[in-house]
Design a protein around this nucleic acid. Structure first.
Length: 758
DNA sequence: GGGGGCTATGGGGGG
DNA sequence: CATAGCCCCC
């Protein structure tokens, strides 16, 4: 046995968990309690105890987590770490399905439909059925379909389920089951799997082939570990059980999780799996990691405090033995843009006072749309930053266009890809032709590609269609003879995409071209990867098809940025598992965090609270929370109360910051907020703020704004002009507003949006 | 029958 | 603020 000095880096509970080799094991791990360390050291420990690396399966939820895990294992055991089956549920199953999918009727080169593909497919089905797409909302239907799949409810079972059917009837969507059925058929006929299918088809594969397939993987995966178990759904748990729960199994299953950090119930995750696990594996050994090594005392205490407002939880209290540290700062901004300014000013101050690097700092928000104002202010202050998520590289139009051709090259039955590019670049195949084609395909239950081949000879746009067919055939032929890079190069040239983009000299056009080039570089890297791992699953993976499968499951989070020292901007969801010396959690307002979409039931609010818990526990030393009194949301100004979560942190952990004056900093049209009171007091004063009917708001011409006029301002509400000074373009109105804390405001008429009343 | 421009509509978190 | 669908022109 090799070096086991890593055991000395662990506390007692951690060490027990790591050294637990045989039988089921559950680790409940609070934030910052060394969960990843336990997981990786346990894998290293297994390898040191002569377990073959490729017989260890470690499932995570993000590629990043999987990659980090591998890197950390490698530091202990060396290159053998690369043979561990560590990856996301989706990527590991996709890898297996590439080999095994033909056993359940799919091609090995199956396409992965992303969310947009699924959505346009559902919309097409709705159109075919002549249903009202306002009633039959594609997103609602997709979430219905997704949750059916995640609960192993087939279209047949769905139609027999009285509860589901009556719910749909109540929602005025009685045809949901029919849409579900058609959706499944259309995906299957296109040789495509959506994200849920990667799990569902894996389940079906194991379930239907107990001898050849299931037994093979049961034997292969001697040890199974699941990270973030609280985020698993029913289907994922069933797959895990198929792999480890069988006659004669060693039951070497280890799950790691924290119910307080369960934030994915919207995609079917259920904490019930934790309770179920204890029932299914009664001999399970349970270890609770509660000592927090990450954050200073006030942060830890506030986190404990806030989570007690949730009824549903496994009792657990995190603690730290390093007392002291800063209190949590709470900052109020008058508007969303002001919030951007306050936060970037605070960042500058932190960097100076605490000598922080950009990379020590993160701004976390509830929704991607909030990133814009921070971006603006950070750029203005020359602070380097990187935004994660949002429109990822692979979701950009030009990238999706190229990928659609790649998909067609690999699998011409891919209807969604075909629809996307059959007329891009323009080749004279319009809506009418496409509709005819689609109808033909639907009647004969064949793919659009086959329809195209059959229909082409006898119709008016014959020539264009035949050209397209020849194009795709030539791409396929090229792919037979060349490597992935050469084929993609051929694709962008032969299809005319490259030419088309090069003729566009706008800034957007140039950036599109750059993106295509970046994509090409990516393929090249992929092809030239020199790492050779010879097994049934990876030896063939340098192909175009392998590359496609790879990128289909990548997200923005997976790209390493060129610049190293940057401030991180990301959603609270994607921040899970990360930590930063200084964290700014922003937009802490009712209707935003908690989200207006999740305020209906107490369960939903509890999930939002767990999300908040995740957010604040990312901070190691300096935590700042901010909220804006007014904010642009959906194209209008909204006034929201400060988030309820701010009141749940325990006042002794908070420090409410006075708005500092930065008179010369300019840029903002809004005066600094003056004295900031306690949050409760603010709440009351805010309530007096009238909601402005934005639809009927129309700014008056500036000459109408004279002394004594009653005016309405979009952000500040109703007020009276007391004075006008300056001349022409530089006129400034002094206005007393009725319902804001700091009523006297000076407003530049050139920029102001004021409506004269009466 | 295809192409281009305009209007209306919807808008969360992610593999 | 982005995309889909619609209308009008070629």
């Amino acid at each position: 046995m090799s070096n086991t000095s890593y055991l000395n880096e662990l506390n007692d509970v951690q060490r027990q968990a790591v050294s637990h080799i045989h039988g089921p094991l559950m680790v409940i791990a609070g934030p910052g309690s060394g969960k990843t360390r336990v997981l990786t050291y346990r894998i290293a420990h297994l390898i040191n105890n002569d377990v073959q690396p490729y017989r260890i399966l470690a499932l995570t939820f993000t590629n990043k987590a999987a990659r980090e895990m591998k890197e950390r294992i490698e530091r202990v055991v060396g290159p053998a770490a690369n043979k561990v089956w560590a990856g996301t549920f989706h990527s590991v199953f996709a890898r297996i399905l590439r080999v095994e999918a033909p056993k359940i009727g799919y091609p090995g080169d199956f396409t992965i439909y992303d969310r947009d593909d699924s959505k346009s497919l559902v919309n097409d089905i709705i159109k075919n059925l002549r249903l009202d797409k306002k009633v039959y909302n594609a997103n609602a239907l997709l979430s219905r379909i997704s949750s059916a799949k995640s609960n192993l409810i087939t279209p047949q079972l769905y139609a027999q389920d009285a509860e589901l059917m009556s719910y749909d009837k109540m929602q005025k969507r009685p045809m949901t089951h029919e849409i579900y059925k058609r959706y499944v058929n259309r995906c299957f006929n296109a040789g495509a799997m959506d994200f849920d299918d990667l799990l569902l088809q894996m389940f079906r594969l194991l379930h239907k082939n107990p001898e050849e397939v299931r037994a093979k993987y049961q034997r292969m995966f001697e040890y199974v570990l699941v990270d973030e178990f609280q985020d698993t759904n029913y289907l994922q748990y069933r797959i895990i059980k198929l792999l480890v729960d069988y006659e004669g199994s060693p039951y070497n299953i280890c799950i790691v999780g924290d119910d307080a950090q369960s934030i994915y119930s919207f995609r079917g995750a259920t904490i019930e799996n934790i309770f179920q696990f204890e029932n299914d594996f009664p001999e399970v050994a349970v270890y609770k990691l509660e000592q927090n090594y990450r954050s200073t005392e006030h942060i830890v205490k506030a986190a404990n405090e806030v989570i007690t407002f949730n009824k549903k939880q496994i009792k657990k209290e995190i603690w730290t033995d390093t007392p002291g540290g800063n209190k949590i700062k709470v900052m109020r901004a008058i508007s969303d843009s002001e919030e951007g300014r306050i936060v970037s000013n605070a960042i500058i101050e932190y960097k100076n006072r605490y000598h922080l690097a950009n990379s020590d700092i993160a701004i976390l928000y509830r929704t991607n749309a909030q990133s814009r104002v921070f971006e603006e202010h950070l750029r203005r202050n020359d602070l380097k930053y990187k935004i994660y998520g949002g429109l990822s590289f692979y979701q950009r139009k030009e990238i999706k266009d190229v990928l659609a051709y790649v998909r067609l090259t690999v699998n011409p039955r891919d209807d969604e890809a075909l629809r996307r590019v059959i007329n891009y670049p323009r080749r004279g195949i319009g809506k009418t032709t496409l509709d005819k084609l689609a109808e033909y395909a639907r009647e004969k239950e064949i793919s659009m590609w086959h329809a195209l081949v059959e229909v082409a000879p006898g119709v008016r746009s014959r020539k264009q269609m035949e050209e397209f067919i020849e194009l795709i055939k030539s791409l396929r032929q090229k792919n037979q003879m060349s490597n992935a890079y050469e084929t993609v190069l051929y694709i962008v040239n032969k299809t005319g995409i490259y030419e088309h983009l090069r003729s566009d000299n706008s800034i957007e056009g140039i950036s599109r071209l750059e993106n295509i080039n970046a994509l090409m570089d990516g393929v090249k890297d992929f092809v030239e990867q020199d790492e050779v791992i010879e097994d049934e699953f990876t030896s063939m993976d340098r192909s175009l098809s392998g590359w496609l499968q790879n990128v289909a499951l990548l997200t923005d989070l997976d790209n390493d940025p060129d610049e190293k020292d940057f401030i991180t901007l990301m959603t609270t969801h994607s921040a899970k598992g990360l930590e930063f010396p200084a964290v700014f959690v922003v937009g802490l307002e009712e209707n935003l965090f908690p989200s207006f979409m999740s305020m209906g039931t107490s369960e939903e609010v509890e999930e939002e609270r767990r999300l908040f818990y995740v957010a604040i526990t990312r901070a190691q030393q300096y935590l700042s929370l901010s909220y804006a009194a007014s904010r642009y949301q959906f194209g209008q100004i909204r006034f929201n109360d400060p988030s309820r979560f701010l009141e749940e942190l325990g006042d002794e952990n908070l420090e409410t910051v006075e708005g500092r004056r930065h008179g010369s900093s300019g840029g903002s049209r809004f005066p600094e907020p003056k004295k900031i009171g306690g949050i409760k007091k603010l709440r009351q004063s805010r309530r007096a703020m009238p909601a402005i009917d934005v639809a009927n708001f129309s700014p008056s011409p500036t000459e109408k704004i004279i002394e004594g006029a009653e005016v309405l301002h979009l952000k500040f509400g109703k007020g009276k002009v007391v004075k006008i000074d300056g001349a022409r373009d530089n006129r400034v109105a002094t206005i007393e507003f009725e319902n804001i804390d700091d009523p006297t405001r000076r407003i530049m008429l050139r920029f102001a949006k004021l409506q004269v009343l009466g």
